[in-house]
Design a protein around this nucleic acid. Structure first.
Length: 421
RNA sequence: GCGAUCGUAGCUCAGUUGGUUAGAGCGCCGGUUUGUGGUACCGGAGGUCGCGGGUUCGAACCCCGUCGAUCGCCCCA
């Protein structure tokens, strides 16, 4: 692997050079997403890869570890702090405000591309990673949540991903959420000494996170922790009911996950993740970073960026993780593989390949190395038709070969007959 | 930030209890078959065994450090 000899610089930790079957799977995920988002009439949006640090710091919350340690921030030549986007949502929210996209409300947008987080890489987690993303902004009704989730569910089905289930929860409105949080702190504080060290720390900084602790010492107390349902207002209860009814109507399977939370304060109501079922092939393929697609309703975000209160809901999914679940994809088979068996006929080969490609057939040309071996190399390329170009008694000979009944055989023969006419 | 495992040709890996010029497969380059031919045969190039130090008569192999990778913890927008 990485040699330190010589002067070649190494790739940055946590970046990937994606090639071969992985690249094919990656492209397949993106192409499927583009197709499905059109079915749901989400409009394509292209966003900057970096923003003022403020965009992320204010939306995420100034005090969290995320802002202080886990963002790729730097100063530009003017001394302004900029940050490579760690997520799509904050940038889209900023654009909504600065570009007056309110005029398009409710706005359904989709995008995909690279994101950056300064973290220790592990399976399914990189410093530069890639996500697909879908947002509905300016829609307060539960129908928006339902449509968004139906799209996510259809995407996973069209990708052929099995053994992944929608885990669904509600965080209620701001008041419900705050009351629940207070009750949780009270509950866990009573047994603080028996919690894991990590969770004793969480108690002060992020008590909701104790609910998804992996430590068995914590899990005993998680089971009988206060449930959000006891704190939901009538409106919040009704909202969640409409979401679940809508999902049932849409045929989207879901499971209530009372411990599913979001780390950030701007989330309200619906929170969800598509997670591999325990013991499934998907779970084995993903390792410990297993959430495939996640999101929720973030009615509190716009205000943190100085905009008018705006209801919105969205999700994002890691392309690399999805690619790990879709299986190996091979590049498309070539229509024609061309062996130029003598250098004297190189230009004939070029003319033939151009004519074939112009006709809409894909072609690969082999014209380097030992002339005797070019046929062998061309034959190794997976192609529907094999064409060799050679000279016999001063005449140019096109020799075509394919499996019986291959439609491209006749097309190539016709193209060659018209060559030079 | 913490922990575990790993680091030998372009790639995937062998390398026995430390013992002479470090191997295989694939790939690459060249040659053989006077040949309408893909899977054969022969040959070649390519490695200061991640890097630095130590132990030893002798280190790819043992010890320390360092860099890198992988996986996990923390975190997870």
């Amino acid at each position: 692997m990485a040699k330190t000899s010589g002067k070649t610089p190494q790739a940055i930790r946590g970046t990937q050079d994606i090639f071969g079957p992985d690249a094919e799977s990656f492209a397949h995920v993106v192409e499927t997403f583009e197709r499905v988002r059109r079915l749901y009439r989400f409009r394509r949006v292209e966003m900057p890869v970096f923003e003022k640090t403020e965009v992320f710091a204010r939306s995420i919350g100034e005090t969290t570890d995320i802002v202080s340690k886990e963002m790729y921030s730097f100063e530009d030549r003017g001394g302004e702090s900029l940050t490579l986007r760690p997520e799509f949502t904050a940038g889209i929210a900023r654009a909504w405000i600065t570009n007056g996209w309110k005029q398009h409300a409710p706005l359904k947008v989709a995008t995909h591309g690279p994101l950056f987080r300064y973290e220790r890489p592990q399976k399914g987690r990189y410093r530069q990673f890639h996500q697909i993303d879908a947002e509905i902004i300016g829609a307060a009704e539960p129908q928006a949540d339902v449509e968004l989730l139906a799209m996510a569910d259809q995407l996973l089905r069209e990708l052929g991903i099995e053994g992944v289930t929608l885990q669904l929860n509600t965080l209620g409105d701001a008041d419900s959420r705050e009351a629940w949080r207070a009750a949780l702190v009270e509950h866990f504080r009573a047994v603080k000494g028996e919690l894991s060290e990590d969770s004793q720390e969480r108690l002060e900084r992020n008590p909701l996170r104790i609910l998804d602790s992996k430590d068995p010492r914590d899990r005993r107390f998680v089971a009988d922790a206060p449930k959000i349902d006891s704190f939901l207002s009538d409106e919040a209860q009704a909202f969640f009911g409409q979401v679940t009814d809508g999902l049932d109507a849409a045929g989207v399977k879901w499971r209530r996950a009372e411990s599913l939370v979001r780390g950030l304060d701007y989330y309200r109501h619906t929170a969800f993740e598509f997670v591999p079922d325990e013991g499934s092939a998907a779970a084995a393929a993903l390792g410990s970073q297993s959430t495939v697609l996640g999101g929720g309703r973030y009615d509190g975000l716009m205000e943190s960026l100085g905009g008018a209160a705006t209801p919105a809901v969205g999700w994002a999914a890691g392309i690399e993780r999805l690619a790990m679940l879709v299986g190996e994809k091979q590049p498309e088979i070539a229509d024609v593989s061309i062996a130029v068996e003598t250098d004297a006929l190189l230009n004939t080969g070029i003319a033939a390949s151009t004519a074939i490609r112009t006709a809409g057939l894909s072609a690969e040309i082999v014209a380097t190395g030992s002339p005797r071996k070019r046929y062998d190399k061309a034959a190794k390329i997976n192609a529907r038709v094999l064409l060799s170009i050679s000279a016999k008694d001063g005449e140019t000979v096109f020799n075509l070969k394919s499996a019986p009944g291959v439609e491209e055989y006749d097309r190539v023969r016709d193209i060659l007959e018209n060559l030079g006419k």
